[in-house]
Simulated assay, not measured.
Amino acid sequence: MEKNLWQQVQLVRQQSPLVHNITNYVVMNNTANALLAAGASPIMAHAKSEIREMINIAHSVVINIGTLDEYWSESMLMAAETANAIHKPWVLDPVGAGATSFRDQILHQLLQFHPTVIRGNASEIIALAKINTTVTKGVDSTAESNDAVEAAQILVQQYNTIVCISGETDIILSPTQTIQIKNGHSLMTKVTGLGCSASALAGAFIAVAEDKAAGIAAAMSLLGIAGELAVRESKGPGSLQVNLIDKLYNMTEEEFTSHLKIEKS
């Protein structure tokens, strides 16, 4: 499987898919740089007058509700509807799901357009499935990845989607398989927006991957391994952010395959 995942990394570098992001103010720069470093081409556009045209030329779409407002929510719904209608793969990042009724209302509407992938932390996935009660602390998770597996399974079945639960162990669930990835480092939680970067990378990888679950596994593995290796050269979160972007760009096959910690069932 290691070789297959590295082939996905190479595909992104070779094909440079155009990823249309409607994401939040906090992470625009970070996610654009992460996409560029991995070999993809980012575009950040949320004007309603150009959404449909942008999605027509993009290879995939990422919708991140982090800094949600009334205008952006309309753009997101238009983007999700368009992507679904023309069978363009798209990622939903349900940032802060469960925190407010406004977020939950918009998420409920977005889910009707059947995201190809849902990527969030355990608390967000649980809130999205509405099968449990948990305290959502901003965009940080108060639950572990394993706590959200049942919720993720419900979402997979209900929306025929792939769910990626981010955490110390990343768990990817599709209708046919479960993949666990145990890469990454705790210092990564001190850099804002790395989860958002994961969603953006997921968008790049599902744009080129025939097996979407393998594409998500490759994206999460790449980010986790890059974080592990970047920590070795970093003095704290500030330098980690810079070093991680460099490592996404410079990652070698030997580094990727020798550090990958993955289980499939």
Score class of each variant (00 low, 15 high):
Gly39Cys: 10
Ala40Tyr: 06
Ala40Asp: 13
Ala40Thr: 06
Ser41Glu: 03
Ser41Trp: 06
Ser41Gln: 13
Pro42Val: 10
Ile43Lys: 00
Met44Arg: 08
Met44Ala: 07
Ala45Leu: 00
His46Cys: 01
His46Lys: 04
Ala47Thr: 10
Ala47Trp: 05
Lys48Thr: 06
Lys48Val: 04
Lys48Arg: 14
Lys48Ala: 09
Lys48Asp: 08
Glu50Gln: 10
Glu50Pro: 08
Glu50Leu: 02
Ile51Arg: 13
Ile51Lys: 05
Ile51His: 07
Arg52Leu: 03
Arg52Pro: 01
Arg52Asn: 13
Glu53Asp: 11
Glu53Gly: 10
Met54Ile: 05
Met54Cys: 07
Ile55Arg: 01
Ile55Pro: 02
Ile55Tyr: 01
Asn56Val: 01
Ala58Trp: 04
Ala58Asp: 09
Ala58His: 03
His59Val: 00
His59Thr: 01
Ser60Trp: 05
Ser60Thr: 05
Ser60His: 12
Val61Ala: 13
Ile63Lys: 12
Ile63Met: 05
Asn64Leu: 05
Asn64Arg: 12
Asn64Phe: 06
Asn64Cys: 15
Gly66Gln: 10
Thr67Glu: 05
Thr67Lys: 10
Thr67Ala: 11
Leu68Gly: 08
Leu68Asp: 13
Leu68Ala: 01
Asp69Glu: 06
Asp69Ser: 07
Glu70Val: 11
Tyr71Ala: 12
Tyr71Glu: 11
Tyr71His: 07
Ser73Phe: 10
Glu74Asp: 14
Glu74Tyr: 04
Glu74Pro: 01
Ser75Pro: 15
Ser75Arg: 08
Leu77Cys: 13
Leu77Arg: 15
Met78Lys: 09
Ala80Lys: 11
Ala80Pro: 05
Glu81Ser: 09
Ala83Glu: 07
Ala83Met: 11
Ala83Cys: 06
Asn84Ala: 08
Ala85Leu: 14
Ala85Asp: 11
Ile86Pro: 00
His87Thr: 11
Lys88Met: 07
Pro89Cys: 01
Leu92Asp: 12
Leu92His: 04
Asp93Ser: 10
Asp93Phe: 13
Asp93Gln: 05
Pro94Gln: 08
Val95Asp: 12
Val95Gly: 05
Val95Met: 10
Gly96Thr: 09
Gly96Asn: 14
Gly96His: 12
Ala97Glu: 13
Gly98Arg: 13
Ala99Lys: 10
Thr100Lys: 10
Thr100Ser: 15
Ser101Gly: 00
Ser101Ile: 12
Ser101Asn: 13
Ser101Pro: 01
Phe102Arg: 08
Arg103Phe: 14
Arg103Pro: 05
Arg103Ser: 09
Asp104Leu: 03
Gln105Ala: 11
Gln105Phe: 08
Ile106Asp: 11
Ile106Phe: 03
Ile106Val: 13
Leu107Met: 09
Leu107Ala: 12
Leu107Ser: 02
Leu107Arg: 06
His108Arg: 15
Gln109Cys: 07
Gln109Thr: 09
Gln109His: 15
Leu111Val: 03
Leu111Ile: 12
Leu111Pro: 14
Gln112Trp: 02
Phe113Glu: 14
Phe113Ala: 08
His114Asp: 08
Pro115Met: 12
Pro115Trp: 09
Thr116Ile: 02
Ile118Ser: 02
Arg119Ile: 08
Gly120Met: 03
Asn121Leu: 14
Asn121Pro: 00
Asn121Thr: 12
Ala122Gln: 08
Ala122Lys: 00
Ala122Gly: 07
Ser123Pro: 04
Glu124Lys: 00
Glu124His: 02
Glu124Trp: 08
Glu124Gly: 03
